[in-house]
Nucleic acid binder design. Structure first.
Length: 197
DNA sequence: TCGACGATGACCT
DNA sequence: GGTCATCGTCGAA
């Protein structure tokens, strides 16, 4: 098994990439703890033209600056003052596309995940929902802008049986008007580790 | 400076 | 179904 290169994330089609990411395994090695999970749910955010995207209309701020970097790096920000949401910047420099990881199925370091989440049972609440994913994987703003082909965060293709992909609308973006209706959320119907069906 | 508000999640009825 | 914790970011003043 080997790390997926940063170039994989520089594809120009963020929607297709979000779908392709389902079934990949995401690893983190943080505070000496190795954890990983199979990606079961993602959402695509398509840069300047997408009302739901933080970079809509080219909005460039201290927070969104990282989105304009070349693809293959983490975009992690604090939401509701409580939750860190883990995204991967995609496309080439200046496009500001990103993929939100909304759920994973725990694989390695489950004990570490229990500790971080203050839980002791392996159910969907451990790693379903973007805030929970980040917490279980130990991700916070410290890892913002870090490469996702690094020794701290990386992806591998475990080549499992193909996922049964369901395509639907994104969650929690009602403010985006008609763009809230875009079918840009993907999840694996065969997994119970999915936030919303 | 200050006020409004979120790409959520946990718990309540 | 509804409420609310909690704080960094952003745009208005």
């Amino acid at each position: 098994m080997s790390k997926i290169p940063q170039s994989y994330f520089q594809s120009g089609n963020v929607v297709q990439l979000a779908e392709d990411l389902i079934g990949m395994e995401v690893f983190t090695n943080i505070d000496g703890q190795l954890t990983s999970g199979i990606v079961t749910e993602t959402e695509a955010y398509a840069g300047k033209g997408d009302k739901a995207c933080h970079a809509h209309l080219g909005r460039f701020t201290k927070r969104t600056a990282v989105m304009y970097q070349p693809g293959g790096i983490a975009y992690i920000y604090l939401c509701y003052g409580i939750h860190h949401l883990f995204n991967i910047v995609t496309n080439t420099k200046g496009n500001a596309d990103a993929i939100l990881i909304r759920a994973v199925e725990p694989k390695r370091g489950i004990e570490s995940m229990f500790k971080r989440r203050d839980k002791s049972k392996l159910d969907k609440t451990l790693t379903s929902g973007p805030g929970n994913v980040s917490q279980a994987l130990g991700l916070s703003k410290i890892q913002n802008s870090l490469s996702v082909s690094s020794d701290t965060i990386w992806f591998e293709d475990p080549k499992l049986k193909p996922p049964e992909i369901v395509t639907t609308t994104r969650i929690g973006i009602d403010y985006a008007g008609e763009d809230a209706l875009l079918p840009w959320r993907f999840y694996d119907a065969t997994s119970k580790f999915v936030s919303v069906r």
